[in-house]
Design a protein around this nucleic acid. Structure first.
Length: 926
RNA sequence: GGGCGGUUAGCUCAGUUGGUUAGAGCGCAUGCUUGACAUGCAUGAGGCCAGAGGUUCAAGUCCUCUACCGCCCA
């Protein structure tokens, strides 16, 4: 027995053949794996993802809704972050589509220049090949082959999640759409002076052999060393180094001394005042350099004197510029010491460091070596230590672009959600340095700049290149194109409009630009959102979207970032196999708020799966409960107002409230709220009560056929509403169930294009809600009293109940339901409170609102009475405490005079209610 | 060094503009093969809302400070 229970709980029965309900033919448990592919195929066949598709029901008089998908890397595969973002994007798209708006969810892939090269290089290395051994043309050929193999992977994986992407418009950042946009954008920026080429200190990754932008350098805490070494002063007369006089400088990078062109001290530092203006000798290269004063030098750091290497350090570069120092590059592209490094030329940077330190120690010129905590910049891609170095590169002048982007967010034309990120955004956009857009890589868009032998630059959007040099008119044959390519993010920055055909004024650009929502994870707000905003506003004159929705990151159950190497990653595809796409989607949305990281583990997924199953089963029930008088396949009818019972009115009203609540949540982009509202409405109201009440009504022979039919149509009506509301979040199971429900003649064949529900005014019924709620409370109270008194749950016990006259008709209508749900039989409604009170006689007292009841156990039991007494005393104590605080509040003149009258009124009513309750409880206890 | 976020039930998290008794899932306890569902049902226990001040008739919610955790930027 125990084993059986265990195996059932662990889900091992999933392998057993489904026990199909004879009535409906539906399996007992929802089996997503058996239906998801077919449902997706139905959507595709119906051609509903494309707003122009034959199945589209888009109303073009409505504002289109457009999400251009953040393009995943072409070489990548689906991870949970993608799944989460696709879900959120897709649910917004589906919601808009059901509202009848032309809804476009445009898919794409990113060529991911540096990341793709990194992946391919590793594959090549396994075969003993390399970028260098293949050469540019062959290498790119291999890349295209590779990309052709991988490009379908992630697109098809996203479809497993249910993403309703319009595959007729799929784009790639290396396709001709993108290429044209890149050439055009760059040429315009160049002509406007916003793109320029200059030698500057850039970040160089020796592993990737390219420059990288500020953002691609990841500072990491590292324990390095602080070396303090002697630079001998030069004799002011002879210019020869003085063996007895030196200045000790502290550095974390001794090998760069080969490129030193000064020693700097703080002008306020009394220790060095006398030395300012003197010369010191850089060891090994034997170069005399000035001792300069600059206030950037931190007197507390090391000895207070630092070496200045303008060509290999960001701060030193600035210092060098201020003081007109020469800049000597001592590293080559592989980060080996170059010809300027004298005896160390040819050595790797770390080997050079080792040898220099050793040599200084041998000479006795090393004062000290201390461990030192510092931040070391590493390459985002390869993790190599990034070298600052001088290179001639293309830059985008960001200040004017950033100003326009800031104006867009400040004016509210683009809103950032959640709004706390506005501050981060502002800070970044104000401080941003010019963007180095050239990369010394091969996989990407080649920079459309040509140089003549005299060094003149010609930039053109013509793919064939210029006819002649713009400056000296040399023929094209004398010109050569820039070898470099663009930073991946340059083409990504054009994505919101390059995908729609920009720079041509295509119908798609006309209709779908600017887009609606840019949904992305907050960690690429600078990489991507900033660039789309800057380039979009500048090149098209409009902000590319009205809302930036920033998602949080998905973490494992312990709050760790998921990663394959850590082995804590959840594979979305495996999860879909196990629990279905809907459950995954629900788990990724429920309990999350925009911008907040969330954790995903087995529990959440299991809960979501259970919810899917709950929905499936209640649908099975509804389908199987169709009164025989309604023929199978009959078109749907709305509940007849003349025949509805109180419970029907109650759930119809609750459903209307749910529609309103979900609408509000969707309006606020509070998708976690929307999912929670639906979870509770479906499970706690519809399944737990509405269906239970309907069962009894449907089986009540004293009611007319019309009443039975109306109750069933009510169940169908509400289920239909919930399926529509839930569809954006859980598209598969809702579509599967909806297909089996009766439809109105105005309904389309598929839920995906069915109308979004509206609040039906006649369904709103405050009386029904209040009255039925009161009676449900009675049921709960009776159950509670029985459970607390430890009465056999199956026992039917007589109950006498008093309800106020106002509740009388509703009570009578629900009498048989209350009997069944509270296991109260016979259930006698007394005409007066006194007769109920008079009948207590050892029974259980139930007091709920202004309803009182007595549950009469078959056998008298002293212990049972005591437990009941104890429960009442607890209730009394609680009520008394609440009453005391309510009274205290009302006794406060400040409250009654200053609080809004409605609040005071509510408080008075509450106090009166509590007073009444205390009275009743006291009466029962005596 | 500057900035942002978090701290709410044993765990993971919701909590809209301040307004009755702070919610959910999981877990826990006690029961239940109730004619859709044991992936279920019923009932229950469990919270000084990190700490200290302040504003207010009223604070989980607004303000200030402190502590710890996390992230971003330099």
């Amino acid at each position: 027995m125990a084993d059986e229970t265990k195996s059932a709980k662990s889900g091992a029965d999933a392998t057993r053949p489904a026990a199909a309900d004879t009535e409906t033919g539906l399996p007992k448990a929802y089996r997503p794996g058996e239906v998801e592919h077919a449902i997706f195929a139905r959507w595709v066949d119906a051609d509903v993802f494309n707003p122009d598709g034959k199945g589209s029901r888009a109303d073009w008089s409505k504002q289109p809704f457009v999400i251009i998908q953040p393009p995943p890397n072409v070489t990548g595969s689906l991870h949970l972050g993608h799944a989460q973002r696709s879900t959120v994007e897709d649910l917004m798209t589906r919601h808009a589509r059901m509202q009848g708006r032309p809804a476009l969810f445009l898919p794409g892939l990113d060529h991911a220049s540096i990341a793709a090269q990194y992946v391919l290089d590793k594959l090549l290395a396994k075969k003993g090949e390399s970028r260098q051994s293949l050469g540019r043309a062959k290498y790119l050929e291999r890349m295209w082959q590779f990309v052709d193999e991988t490009r379908q992977t992630i697109l098809s994986q996203q479809r497993r999640v249910g993403a309703s992407l319009d595959m007729t418009r799929v784009r790639f950042t290396m396709d001709e759409f993108s290429a044209r946009a890149v050439r055009e954008a760059f040429t315009r920026l160049y002509r406007e002076g916003l793109a320029y080429r200059t030698e500057a200190l850039i970040h160089w990754c020796p592993g990737c052999r390219t420059s990288v932008s500020d953002l691609e350098v990841i500072p990491k805490e590292t324990t390095g060393s602080l070396w303090t070494m002697r630079y001998h002063l030069l004799d002011e007369q002879t210019g020869a180094p003085d063996p007895d006089a030196w200045i000790s400088v502290a550095t974390t990078r001794p090998e760069t001394l080969l490129g030193d062109t000064a020693v700097a001290v703080n002008p306020e530092d009394p220790r060095y005042t006398a030395l300012i203006g003197r010369q010191a000798m850089v060891p090994f290269v034997d170069r005399g350099v000035p001792i300069i004063a600059d206030s950037v030098v931190d007197m507390a750091f090391g000895t207070g004197a630092v070496k200045i290497t303008p060509a290999h350090d960001n701060d030193d570069y600035e210092t060098g510029k201020r003081h007109g120092l020469s800049m000597i590059t001592v590293l080559d592209d592989a980060a080996r010491i170059n010809e300027n490094g004298g005896q160390f030329a040819g050595l790797d940077r770390f080997e050079a460091r080792r040898q220099i330190v050793e040599a200084l120690q041998e000479r006795g010129e090393m004062d000290s070596i201390k461990p030192h905590e510092m931040l070391l910049g590493r390459c985002q891609r390869s993790d190599d230590v990034v070298e600052p170095r001088l290179k001639t590169q293309w830059f985008i002048r960001v200040a004017p672009l950033a100003a326009a982007a800031l104006e867009a967010t400040r004016s509210g034309r683009t809103q950032i959600l959640p709004d706390r990120f506005v501050k981060v955004w502002e800070h970044w956009m104000t401080e941003m340095r010019d963007w180095n857009v050239s990369r010394q890589l091969w996989w990407g868009h080649r920079i459309p700049a040509w140089y003549c032998p005299d060094g003149h630059v010609t930039v053109t959007q013509d793919p064939a290149g210029p006819v002649a040099c713009e400056v000296c008119s040399r023929p094209a044959a004398d010109l050569h194109q820039d070898e470099d390519i663009f930073d991946t993010w340059f083409s990504s920055g054009l994505w919101p409009f390059s995908t729609l055909g920009w720079p041509d004024n295509t119908p798609d650009l006309e209709r779908f630009y600017p887009g609606s929502v840019m949904e992305t994870a907050y960690d690429i707000i600078f990489f991507w959102v900033a660039r789309m905003m800057m380039l979009g506003i500048h090149l098209t004159g409009e902000a590319p979207f009205h809302t930036v929705y920033l998602s949080g990151l998905i973490r494992d159950p312990y709050g760790q970032k998921m990663s394959k190497t850590k082995g804590n990653s959840v594979d979305p595809l495996e999860t879909i196999e196990e629990v279905g796409a809907d459950a995954l989607r629900f788990a990724l949305v429920n309990g999350t708020a925009p911008g907040n990281d969330s954790r995903l583990g087995a529990e959440k997924l299991e809960n979501a799966r259970n919810f899917t199953n709950k929905l499936w089963n209640v649908a099975r029930f509804v389908l199987g409960a169709r009164p025989a008088s309604i023929p199978s396949g009959a078109p749907r009818e709305l509940p007849n107002r003349a025949d509805v019972g109180p419970a029907d009115r109650w759930i119809l009203s609750r459903a209307a409230a749910t529609v309103a609540a979900v609408d509000e949540a969707m309006r606020l982009y509070a998708f976690g709220d929307a999912s929670q509202i639906l979870y509770e409405a479906i499970w706690n109201e519809y399944c737990d009560w509405a269906v239970e009440l309907a069962k009894i009504r449907l089986g009540d022979a004293s009611l007319s056929t019309a009443e039975h039919e109306t109750t069933w149509w009510t169940l169908v009506d509400v289920l239909d509403t919930y399926l529509r509301l839930l569809h954006p979040i859980m598209p598969f199971v809702t579509e599967e169930i909806w297909e089996r429900l009766p439809h109105l003649s105005s309904d389309p064949a598929l839920l995906i294009v069915a109308d979004w529900p509206t609040v039906v005014a006649y369904a709103v019924d405050a009386d029904a809600e209040r009255e039925v709620n009161a009676l449900l409370e009675l049921v709960r109270a009776v159950r509670n009293a029985r459970a607390e008194a430890r009465i056999e749950p199956a026992a039917w016990l007589p109950v006498d109940v008093y309800v106020p006259d106002a509740l009388g008709p509703t009570f009578d209508a629900l009498q048989s339901a209350i009997e069944r749900l509270a296991r109260a039989r016979p259930l006698d409604r007394s005409s007066s409170l006194d007769s109920v009170r008079g009948a207590v006689d050892g029974g259980l007292s139930v007091i709920v609102g202004d309803i009182e009841a007595v549950v009469r156990p078959v056998a008298r039991d002293e212990a049972q009475s005591e437990r009941d007494h104890a429960r009442l005393e607890r209730e009394l104590a609680e009520a008394q405490a609440l009453l005391a605080s309510a009274r205290a509040r009302l006794a406060n003149d400040a409250f009654t005079s200053k609080a809004p009258p409605t609040v005071v009124e509510v408080a008075r009513a509450r106090a009166a209610e509590l007073e009444e309750l205390v009275g009743r409880l006291t009466q029962r206890l005596n």
